[in-house]
């Protein structure tokens, strides 16, 4: 993910705030459709697709991430066909439970919202994202926390991984250690994390840290960013109000209702 954040593209050059606002508007618009909507959601595909194309991030990467995250939505969504069994006639005379339609709608929304959010993050990079967050008014302590968490996530996770590997090598195929051994392993990991926090603090103090984390900022609002936000929000509003897909379909099939 971080590699993509360091890339350069038209999508990356957009202000992280502009992308944040557009993406949130996108999610709200998508989620405000009634539960059985399918075709009305179709035009919204254009937003993640265009952003993805502009960013130059490989689509397979986003697709994989979406699939990894899918099980929860599928699990809960699967109850819809179970509990909502009103027959619905599909074109071609096929009859299915209404729940299947809303299930499909849930999956569609899921894919749309998750992919939009992922493209937004991947095309921004953590530090630009945080700078953007701070400028829309997120609490400083939270923004700094996000930066530090992100910075030490992989460092500490590597330590955890090494400890787990060392444990697995000596555990003869058992599924996990006993609670006592677990307490010791995780406790050691915690102590190491605390030691690291201590050392990082010393390093920060050594360079004049006084409680404020300062960073070079270079984000400046441009007209392009504003236009990006305005155009997309207008599009979302139109697509939310009128079913564009259906209109297109009606036009193609000769206006047959």
């Amino acid at each position: 993910m971080d590699e993509f954040g360091a890339m350069d593209s038209p999508a990356h050059r957009l202000d992280a705030r502009a992308k944040a606002v557009a993406t949130i508007a996108f999610i709200v618009a998508v989620m405000s459709f009634p539960p059985y909507e399918l075709s009305g959601l179709a035009p919204f595909v254009i937003y993640p697709v265009v952003l993805l194309a502009l960013s130059g991030i490989p689509p397979a990467f986003i697709l994989r991430k979406v699939l990894i995250a899918a099980p929860f939505a599928i699990c809960i969504g699967l109850f819809n066909p179970l509990f909502d069994r009103h027959p619905v006639v599909l074109p071609g005379g096929l009859v299915v439970a209404g729940g299947w339609i809303s299930f499909a709608s849930i999956l569609f929304r899921f894919a749309l919202t998750v992919s939009a959010a992922l493209v937004w993050v991947a095309s921004s990079g953590m530090h630009r994202l945080c700078a953007g967050l701070e400028r829309i008014g997120a609490p400083r302590a939270f923004v700094v926390q996000l930066l530090f968490l992100h910075r030490y996530l992989f460092v500490v996770a590597d330590e955890g991984l090494r400890m787990r590997r060392a444990m697995d090598l000596r555990s003869a195929g058992a599924r996990g250690p006993s609670l006592r051994v677990y307490g010791s392993i995780t406790g050691h990991l915690l102590l190491r994390a605390l030691d690291r926090a201590h050392r990082v603090y010393a390093a920060m103090r050594a360079r004049g840290f006084d409680g404020r984390v300062r960073a070079l900022r270079e984000t400046e609002s441009r007209i392009g960013d504003a236009a990006f936000v305005v155009c997309w929000i207008a599009f979302f509003a139109i697509a939310r109000k009128w079913n564009l897909a259906e209109a297109l379909g009606a036009w193609i099939t000769g206006g047959a209702r």
């Binding site: 700094v144 030490y152 996770a157 991984l161 995780t186 915690l190 990082v200």
Partner: peptide
Amino acid sequence: DRLVPLMGVLGAFIFAAQMINFT
């Protein structure tokens, strides 16, 4: 201001700890 690195590293610790299972 010790809290700044402490909170960050402990957040990372939570991620790491979630990788270690016990019976």
